[in-house]
């Protein structure tokens, strides 16, 4: 996967007061090869000018990225690095290079082909960690935090074992959430803000036990389908419905677009391969969906499916990553037989 095919949203703030830790976020790579920024936007409020998005690691050669980062953190006396997946490996690598105080990672072994850093390169950085730091960076004891998603436990442990033993490595696990859904779960909850607040105040870090439950609450929504189909301009049928925001806060539709979140349908007709459903998508556009408000959508059911009858299962989807209804979020289904369709067509 190649990064940088589309420009990253500029969320870079370089100033800080020199006493509070500077948080360096290393973006993962999204399914389109772009820096994945969802997780950082939820932190702008809590971190303000202490947040620095280190996306150069994806677009520059590593020595150049290293030099740029050293320059950017010149006034940072305390540095914390964090990231998910490929971004987590970057956080580990540059955390060692920059003599960070903490490196906080989620699923660092995930997305093995994404970005220029693999686990072996990360381990090598820890082998040479005894080399003197750049003179303006303080040397401090490094704590590494690895939280594994449900599908990265074994490979994360292998990566942890490759790091130098003098490092203290905190291990956590999230049983209910795989890597593909991790960034959205973190972005849509206040888990990261709580973690930062805990570190700022010297309190124990929050446990990830409740992340899935928080996510279900923070991103609660309902999907309803209109049982009446209407012919579409493309020769199929338009399946209409509404998305209701049943969470306590507004959904940002801009973020949906940036994070490739859409309404999707998996459409199966009799005789189809169940593992290869036809699909349809609806993109929201812009604006916000306030708490308790609804947003209409429509999906094109293709002509081929209509002729034989179909079942459409509709849910939110994060393109290239996961379907929300695979993680206890709701879906809505509509089954229509060929006979009924013929009657409707005859009207």
């Amino acid at each position: 996967m190649k990064a940088g095919s589309q420009p990253a949203r500029p969320v870079q703030i370089d100033r800080q007061d020199g006493h509070s830790p500077l948080w360096l976020g290393f973006p993962d790579v999204d399914p389109l090869g772009r820096p994945a920024l969802a997780v950082f936007s939820s932190l702008e409020q809590s971190l303000g000018n202490r947040l620095l998005i280190a996306d150069e690691w994806l677009s520059s050669e590593l020595p150049i990225a290293r030099a740029r980062l050293i320059e950017r953190v010149r006034n940072g006396h305390r540095i914390f690095c964090f990231g998910i997946g490929a971004g987590a490996r970057a956080a580990l690598f540059f955390g060692s290079v920059l003599r960070a105080e903490r490196v906080i990672t989620w699923a660092p072994s995930a997305a093995p082909g994404a970005g220029p850093l693999d686990a072996a390169a990360v381990a090598m950085a820890y082998d040479i960690a005894s080399s003197p730091p750049p003179p303006h960076l303080t040397s401090s004891a490094l704590t590494v935090h690895i939280t594994s998603s449900s599908d990265t436990v074994d490979t994360d442990i292998a990566l942890a074992r490759s790091l130098r033993p003098a490092v203290g490595i905190r291990l956590d696990r999230i049983e209910g959430i795989p890597y593909s859904a991790l960034e959205q779960a973190l972005a849509q909850t206040n888990y990261l803000s709580r973690m930062i607040e805990a570190i700022d105040h010297g309190r124990p870090l929050p446990k990830p036990h409740h992340l899935q439950r928080s996510w279900l609450s923070a991103f609660a929504h309902q999907i309803a389908l209109d049982p009446a189909l209407s012919p579409s301009e493309e020769g199929g049928f338009a399946l209409r419905g509404t998305l209701r925001n049943s969470s306590p806060k507004a959904f940002s539709i801009e973020r949906f677009e940036r994070d490739l979140i859409r309404v999707g349908a998996r459409i199966i007709s009799p005789g189809d391969d169940l593992t290869q459903p036809r699909s349809a998508r609806f993109s929201f556009g812009s604006g916000a969906l306030q708490a308790d408000a609804t947003l209409p959508f429509w999906l094109e059911v293709p002509r081929e499916a209509v002729a034989r009858g179909f079942e459409a299962r509709v849910a939110l989807v994060c393109e290239g990553r996961f379907w929300f209804d695979d993680h206890q979020f709701p879906n809505a289904t509509l089954s229509v037989s060929a006979d009924v369709l013929q009657k409707w067509s005859a009207k």
């Binding site: 203290g168 905190r170 124990p204 036990h209």
Partner: peptide
């Protein structure tokens, strides 16, 4: 870590010396 997650308790492991 698996036990901590299973029992949902305040138990945190660290790899260290």
């Amino acid at each position: 870590a698996a036990s901590s997650e299973h029992y949902k308790v305040d138990l945190t492991p660290y790899i260290g010396t």
